[in-house]
Design a protein around this nucleic acid. Structure first.
Length: 265
DNA sequence: ATGGTTGTCATACAA
């Protein structure tokens, strides 16, 4: 069995106590973090090692963005793509090296949020988000190994991935143009959306609730921005998928919650 | 239509 968690942690240094709480209680084999918000030298590697996560791949930058993958299973870092073509740290790829794990590739990605206005003519960040997705699609077309790609995709593609489809149609993260770009990425490899395999639409499934709504639980204006997508054959080996919604209620929480998938490898 | 919050870094920017 191999278990993998993805979690946008929104500052790994600030939230290391929550990470420790999560790892102690749930102990996934691999943890993919997004928005670590630090450079490699500032990453709390020692704390991870002491928890048994001795294998660490960090792609960081000062203050913003940044991703890291930590693991109890041995891996080798294989890639750091700049799909935005602007030097931001938004991806790191690793491959498990123990033969028992069949060379499983784990890609950890943080798709840009894309700013507020869903129009690339007036909002460059939105254009960068769309370009990022197109470059991901071109890359996915060539993927030829069993791969799991996880992370904060910053897009909620399905109607049941948001609290109100109608009210969010013009809100960045749920606009048709983004959903279509994400679909091109999906079609380029034929990924399986593991989250929706295990929690089929139209069931409620959210992974993020804004800090701007203090009554997040009562109002439940969530979105499914975080995803775990697998190559078709690998997806068939996914046995369990969990959403740790309670983590949104922890003290000084991230606005995203951890998602975990277990594979029979 | 507007503002609501958080984190980093330095008082603005990204989400």
């Amino acid at each position: 069995m191999v278990s993998v968690t993805t979690w946008n942690i929104n500052s790994v240094r600030l939230r290391m106590p929550l990470v420790e709480q999560f790892l102690t209680a749930h102990a996934p084999d691999v943890l993919c973090l997004q928005e670590i918000k630090c450079i490699e030298e500032q990453f709390p590697a020692k704390a991870f090692r002491e928890l048994g996560y001795e294998h660490i791949a960090i792609h960081g930058q000062k203050g913003y963005h940044g991703v890291a993958t930590v693991s109890r299973l041995p891996f080798r870092e294989i890639s750091r793509y700049d799909w935005q073509d602007n030097g931001e740290a938004r991806h790191v790829g690793v491959q498990l090296t123990d033969p028992a794990h069949q060379g499983m590739v784990i890609e950890n990605v943080y798709v840009p949020a894309g700013g507020d206005v869903p129009d690339r003519e007036v909002n460059a960040k939105f254009g960068q988000k769309l370009d990022f997705l197109e470059r991901m699609a071109r890359w996915a077309d060539k993927v030829d190994q069993p791969t799991l790609i996880v992370g904060d995709f910053n897009i909620a593609p399905l109607e049941s991935d948001v609290w109100s489809h109608k009210q969010l149609l013009k809100v960045v993260s749920h606009t048709p143009i983004e959903v279509e770009a994400l679909q091109r990425f999906m079609d380029a490899h034929g990924w399986t959306d593991i989250g929706r395999e295990h929690v089929p639409a139209p069931q409620r499934y959210y992974s993020w609730w804004s800090y701007r709504n203090p009554n997040w639980q009562t109002n439940d204006k969530g979105r499914r921005l975080d995803h775990m997508w697998a190559s078709p054959d690998l997806a068939k080996q996914a046995t369990r998928h969990t959403i740790l919604e309670e983590a949104r209620n922890w003290e000084r929480p991230s606005d995203h919650v951890p998602l975990t998938t277990e594979f029979s490898l």
